[in-house]
């Protein structure tokens, strides 16, 4: 009984290792596809609470104040990259985020519900579907 049990648990441990490895490989494959397939974007889109706030080209330097009620995020576009320089949110995750410039990269401020996304706009690169 005891022998059987320990044999069984050894088999399960082996399954654990396989399971974890498969998970890791799947995640890294997804990650590799995601990061390698991206191009540099040319447009910055700001949405607040799911609604479009504004859109700016990435190649023109500017500073945008995103002020909704008492919430404030300041977005800076500089040298073709966008970053949040200042924010009223308590965690400061958005202002600690590195500058974004590749297609699909985004800075997300959960407390203020602000999402800043880089995309490619233009006729030939228009998305098939907007989800």
């Amino acid at each position: 009984m005891n022998f059987q049990e320990s044999k069984n648990s050894k088999k399960k441990l082996k399954n654990d290792v396989i399971f974890i490895l498969v998970l890791l490989v799947a995640v890294s494959a997804l990650g590799a596809i995601y990061f390698l397939a991206r191009e540099d974007g040319n447009t910055v889109t700001i949405t607040v609470d799911g609604e479009l706030f504004a859109e700016y080209p990435l190649d023109e330097d500017c500073t945008v104040e995103i002020r909704i009620g008492e919430n404030l995020n300041v977005l800076v576009i500089e040298n073709g990259k966008a970053y949040v320089s200042e924010a009223s949110c308590p965690d400061g995750i958005c202002s600690a985020h590195k500058p974004i410039y590749r297609e699909g990269e985004s800075i997300i401020c959960l407390p203020n519900k602000v999402v800043v996304t880089v995309s490619i706009s233009g006729e030939e690169n228009a998305p098939d579907i907007i989800v």
């Binding site: 974890i20 890791l24 949405t47 699909g104 985004s106 997300i108 996304t117």
Partner: peptide, 29 residues
């Protein structure tokens, strides 16, 4: 988060979170 923020962009966080989830899962297990 995708639902609340109405964006799919946050999905790429999952790649990092999956890896840290695996590590902490091993420890908790």
């Amino acid at each position: 988060a995708m639902l609340l923020l109405d964006t799919a962009e946050i999905g790429y966080y999952m790649i990092i979170l999956a890896i840290t989830g695996i590590i902490s899962g091993i420890f908790i297990g």
